[in-house]
Write a protein that binds this DNA or RNA. Structure first.
Length: 110
DNA sequence: TATATGACGACGA
DNA sequence: ATCGTCGCCATAT
């Protein structure tokens, strides 16, 4: 059994918990989630964790967007992008005419 | 070891 | 504001 001093699974749990803390109607960036989880500079890992979520997860993965306030492109899955838009829209989170979400307005302020 | 790959981000032209 | 480049960091090959 491998006993690492800082298991990668612990980082995953912290990321999941942080995403779970984003309130309905708000959005957070990957980098913000990483920092809130106590894992600065690991925005990419946040993306990797979300990418690995089971399809029927309860987690509000759709509340995470990139630092530009845009829905990040999913290689090989354009439908996910539309599902995210729809989920956000249902919560009253709407993009501008060019598909950008206003972080000043919807950004999560922990 | 060495490279390549990403739901990313900061920065400079 | 947009875009290319480079930095970061965990994983996979």
């Amino acid at each position: 059994m491998k006993t690492s001093r800082n298991s990668p699974d612990e980082a995953v749990q912290r990321i999941l918990a942080t995403v779970d803390a984003i309130p309905r109607g708000a959005i957070a960036t990957y980098g913000q989630v990483a920092r809130e989880a106590g894992l600065p500079r690991r925005a990419r890992q946040v993306g990797a964790v979300l990418a690995a979520l089971p399809a029927r997860t309860k987690l509000a993965w759709h509340r995470v967007v990139n630092a530009q306030g845009r829905i990040s492109k999913r290689p090989g899955d354009d439908s996910a992008e539309q599902r995210q838009r729809g989920r956000l829209r249902r919560e009253g989170v709407r993009p501008d005419e060019r598909g950008r979400y206003d972080l000043q307005r919807y950004g999560w302020r922990p």
